[in-house]
């Protein structure tokens, strides 16, 4: 009973550690790393559901009866590509953020964002007077 669901539980632990990193860490690269951990764990969820007891890889050959399910494999191939595309785009954004703000820590960026805003607010108030 328990062993049949064990794979899912492992996946849940992995996924949740990824999600935790995304939310809790301020470093943008760390966030992307967490994101890719999260995604890779979802891949494991899909792949482990495709396994059939005693099956082999879904390549047809003589004297093979039992095959694992090829459909999840196809889906995950697509999902891996999507994952790397997102990561690459995110990294490009990180480079630009580093150039624009001089930091890749979330807190620093928020502080820097608020500074000019308060300045402009002052300006606005002056203008109204």
């Amino acid at each position: 009973m328990i062993t049949g669901l064990f794979n899912n539980w492992i996946v849940i632990v992995l996924m949740m550690s990824g999600l935790y990193i995304v939310i809790a860490h301020g470093n943008l690269i760390k966030k992307l790393i967490g994101l890719s951990l999260f995604q890779t764990s979802v891949f494991i969820l899909y792949i482990s559901m495709a396994k059939v007891e005693g099956g082999t890889a879904p390549i047809l050959a003589e004297n093979i009866k039992e095959l694992s399910n090829p459909l999840p494999h196809v889906l995950i191939l697509t999902a891996i590509v999507v994952g790397i595309s997102t990561t690459a785009l995110g990294l490009a954004l990180v480079i630009r953020i580093k150039e624009a703000y001089g930091s890749i820590e979330e807190e620093d960026i928020q502080i820097l964002d608020n500074l000019p805003q308060s300045k402009t607010q002052k300006k606005i108030m002056d203008g109204e007077q």
């Binding site: 891949f43 482990s48 879904p58 494999h73 995950i76 191939l77 891996i80 590509v81 990561t87």
Partner: peptide, 19 residues
């Protein structure tokens, strides 16, 4: 081990390599 050879190939090339 889960019989997903194509996926493994891609993951090794992408996850461990390019990314």
């Amino acid at each position: 081990a889960m019989d997903a050879v194509d996926v493994a190939f891609t993951e090794a090339a992408v996850g461990a390599g390019i990314s």
